[in-house]
Simulated assay, not measured.
Amino acid sequence: MDRDHVTVNRDVWDADADNWVAEGERLWSAEAPSWGNWGESEDRLQMLPADMRGKDAIELGCGTGYVAAWMARRGARVTAIDVSPRQLATARRLAAAHGAEITFIEGNAEVTGLPDGAFDFAISEYGAAIWCPPGDWLREAWRLLRPGGRLVFLGNHPFVLITTPENGAPCDRTLHRPYRGMWGADWTTVEIEPSGIAFNLTHADWWALFAEIGFRVAGYHEIYAPDWAEDTRGSVPADWARDFPVEQVWKLEKPG
Rank of each mutant, 00 (worst) to 15 (best):
R3P: 01
T7Y: 06
R10V: 09
A15G: 15
A17S: 15
W20T: 07
V21N: 04
A22P: 01
G24C: 06
L27M: 11
W28S: 08
G36P: 09
N37K: 10
S41D: 05
R44N: 00
P49C: 07
A50W: 07
M52L: 12
G54Y: 07
I58K: 02
G63R: 00
G65T: 08
V67I: 15
M71F: 09
R74P: 00
G75L: 13
G75S: 09
T79C: 09
S84L: 03
T90G: 01
R92S: 12
R92K: 15
A100E: 14
G107S: 09
L114G: 04
P115E: 05
A118M: 03
A122S: 09
A128I: 04
P134F: 07
D136A: 15
D136S: 14
R139L: 11
W142I: 04
R143M: 09
R143Q: 07
L145N: 05
N156K: 02
N156W: 02
T164K: 12
G168Y: 15
G168R: 11
C171N: 15
D172W: 13
R180N: 13
G184P: 05
G196M: 11
I197R: 00
T202F: 04
W207C: 09
W207D: 01
W207L: 12
L209W: 06
E212Q: 12
R216G: 02
R216D: 01
I223N: 06
E230D: 14
V236G: 06
